[in-house]
Design a protein around this nucleic acid. Structure first.
Length: 469
RNA sequence: GGCCCCAUCGUCUAGCGGUUAGGACACAGGCCUCUCAAGCCUGGAACGCGGGUUCAAGUCCCGCUGGGGUCACCA
């Protein structure tokens, strides 16, 4: 590619950054990085009713978390009104746009009528050529659109798609209140920003001919387009809230790692042979529009979970610990109860047992509580009177272990097992319930060592007390 | 409904005229084992249908069916 690639991602701040939007942003960003081009963020905030500053901030925060840096922007359309006004004036002067004094109600009537006659509902062109007939009446600006012929979109993914102009309206480009409309702003902005490739969702394909007409009227060369497939829910319906978490920030909250989300989203619709796990650099190196799939993809939370654990299993322990500690602190737990060395060791134990950082926090909990909280069902099943004697022996053997490390703990267990003629399975589980309160934890030696001698012994004593009851 | 897009295991996908149709998630069974995981092994599971083109079609063409998108003075 000879030209310098310039792409943009253009969300509207009427909601959180959706995973579908994030995926589109990712494709744009990786495309730019692959070609050494420029990635631009442009927020389309012209909907005064629904846009909010809170969503604007949340979108930036989501990108910040994902680690996507934009080379230009964020631009905001509300700060670029002069540019649209200028472009509109130009089109009015050239005759490509005209004043329309029909009211929305009038237009609604036309559409109804056309529909009744079995024709496609559209504005009937009443005000075409009526320049300034009624200067006092409020007006909007419409784009003069050919009635015949066709407008073809040369799409990098889909190929040439042609739309009969007869299907197209003389669309409003400036509202009666003077504000420019979406399809107009997009084309003006993309032209003004010298965008070379527009990579966006398939739902915009039918907007493209309208925008192409604006380019033509403006006398600007259009960019190239690539309309990517959309993300669907399990029921094959467009992914929405009722399918579960849809915003990027929700995934952060749920304990996902940004690189896992990125990997999953990029792999959804893009592939490189049989490879499933990619580093950011590998994606940058290999990304291409040609390898994008044209069909819609169903969002599969389970595969995302699997990928997240893949990253948890191989991630830097210090980083994972920091993430884990934030969550433990949120739960009001004191992480200083364990040395940093022990906390790091805990991460090693938990990384193969958790699919999210949140799950890791669940597993870590018992190591940071001052007292054991017993699961009564587990107690009833494993802490029966008959186990009291072996448990006391374990307690006493453990009391003599110094240093309190895996090897010594193991030896202590083996002695008790031998003396009592017990199998490991008969002893480990009661001990586990005694010191953790439940039936699930890392290996029993590791669990005891992590807990430390003092808490292990006191918890064993507490459990023995329960058997006594 | 008009216009437009799409179509390989349940899901994500590889395949770019000749393959025992491959991988991944999930699922099932097994191994390992102090619980839960992780790991390892094994298994079931797909070319939507009908016509063409061709010596040969999952791959190319047409139709059907199915799914999705879009038809605003929202973005």
């Amino acid at each position: 590619m000879n030209e310098i690639v310039r792409v943009r991602f253009a969300p509207s701040n009427t909601g959180h950054l959706h995973v579908g939007g994030a995926r589109t942003a990712l494709f744009n960003w990786f495309f730019a990085r692959h070609h050494g081009g420029t990635a631009i963020l442009r927020v389309e905030d012209t909907d005064r009713e629904r846009s909010t500053e809170a969503y604007y901030d949340a979108i930036l925060e989501a990108f910040d978390w994902l680690g996507l840096e934009w080379d230009e922007g964020p631009y905001r359309q509300t700060e670029r009104m002069d540019i649209y006004t200028e472009a509109a004036k130009k089109l009015l002067a050239s005759g490509d746009a005209y004043r329309c004094t029909c009211t929305p109600d009038d237009v609604e009537e036309m559409r109804k009528k056309a529909r009744a006659e079995g024709k496609s509902p559209k504005y009937d062109g009443t005000c075409r050529g009526r320049y300034d007939k009624d200067p006092d009446r409020p007006f909007c600006l419409r784009l003069l659109t050919p009635d015949e012929g066709e407008t073809v979109v040369a799409d990098l993914l889909t190929g040439e798609v042609s739309f009969p102009n007869e299907q197209l309206d003389d669309m409003v480009i400036v509202r009666t209140d003077g504000t420019p409309t979406y399809n107009f702003c997009v084309a003006v902005d993309d032209a003004d920003m010298k965008i070379t490739h527009v990579i966006r969702g398939n739902d915009h394909l039918s907007n493209t001919p309208k925008q192409l007409l604006v380019y033509k009227a403006l006398g600007e060369p259009p960019p190239r387009f690539a309309h990517i497939s959309m993300i669907l829910g399990t029921d094959k319906k467009r992914l929405s809230k009722r399918h579960g978490a849809t915003s990027v920030l929700e995934y952060r909250r749920a304990g996902f790692l940004p690189e896992a989300l990125i990997n999953y989203l990029v792999r959804l619709g893009w592939s490189l042979g049989d490879q499933e796990v990619f580093t950011r650099d590998e994606i940058i190196e290999n990304f291409s529009i040609e390898n994008l799939n044209r069909s819609a993809a169903v969002f599969n939370p389970e595969k995302l979970l699997w990928l997240n654990q893949e990253y948890i299993k191989t991630g830097d322990a210090g980083r994972l610990l920091a993430l884990l500690e934030d969550r433990l602190h949120e739960r009001g737990l004191d992480t200083a109860l364990l040395s940093r060395e022990a906390r790091l060791a805990l991460v090693e134990e938990l990384r193969t047992r958790a699919q999210t950082i949140e799950e890791m926090a669940d597993g870590a909990r018992i190591f940071f509580t001052p007292e054991v909280e017993y699961d009564e069902k587990a107690v009833a099943k494993f802490l029966k009177p008959g186990i009291a004697a072996p448990l006391i022996k374990v307690r006493d053997a453990l009391a003599g272990v110094e240093p309190f490390a895996a090897q010594g703990v193991k030896t202590a267990f083996e002695e008790v097992l031998e003396a009592e003629g017990l199998k490991m399975g008969k002893l480990a589980q009661p001990v586990r319930v005694a010191v953790t309160g439940g039936t699930v934890s890392p290996g029993i030696y590791e669990t005891l060592c992590l807990l430390g001698k003092d808490r292990s012994l006191s918890r064993l004593d507490a459990a023995l007390g329960k058997i006594g009851d």
